[in-house]
């Protein structure tokens, strides 16, 4: 049996507390203890990005973070992208551009794409492709994903100008 530690963290702005086995990864804590099933496991070894979340604002793979490390920190998941019941522009554009097929990689892509656009309002195609290289998609060939991110960036820039 593994030791457990009481973890107090914030997930999408809400306080969440749970007893966490010390060897449990954050991905499992979020899924099994915080009810954030939008965090997906594709590999468990940091190679696919399906479990992408932000930890104190920094994009990470939650499978490569221990659950106990979240203590006192803030986590953002795909469930937190929607604000006041409204979809985030990235979520809208992903649907509009058919940027998802099976959808298992989509939450990770959205979290990673948001991290990109938060830091770079006008990324080139190449910058988008490299920023999203840590997120594997096996359905789309990435074409419509890149287009959706480009379209979102364009819209966000326009709305900022207004």
């Amino acid at each position: 049996m593994s030791d457990a530690v009481l973890v107090s963290t914030k997930v999408n702005g809400d306080v969440v507390e749970f007893a966490c086995p010390t060897d449990e990864v954050l991905m499992d804590s979020l899924r099994d203890r915080a009810g954030m099933n939008g965090v997906k496991e594709g590999c468990g070894t940091g190679d696919c990005g399906a479990c992408s979340v932000t930890l104190d604002g920094q994009l990470v793979c939650s499978c490569l973070v221990l659950g106990v490390e979240a203590n006192g920190r803030e986590i953002g998941t795909v469930e937190g992208l929607t604000e006041d019941g409204k979809l985030h522009p990235l979520q809208e554009k992903f649907i509009e551009h058919a940027a998802l097929q099976c959808g298992i990689c989509t939450p990770g892509f959205l979290v990673a794409a948001k991290a990109l656009l938060d830091n770079n309002a006008n990324p080139t195609e190449t910058e988008i492709r490299y920023a999203l290289a840590g997120n594997l998609c096996r359905c789309t060939g990435y074409d419509k994903i890149v287009r959706a991110v480009q379209a979102t960036a364009k819209d966000l820039r326009k709305s900022k100008k207004r």
Partner: peptide, 9 residues
């Protein structure tokens, strides 16, 4: 070393 996600860590 790795993706942007890995770079975060």
């Amino acid at each position: 070393i790795g993706s942007d996600q890995i770079q975060g860590r």
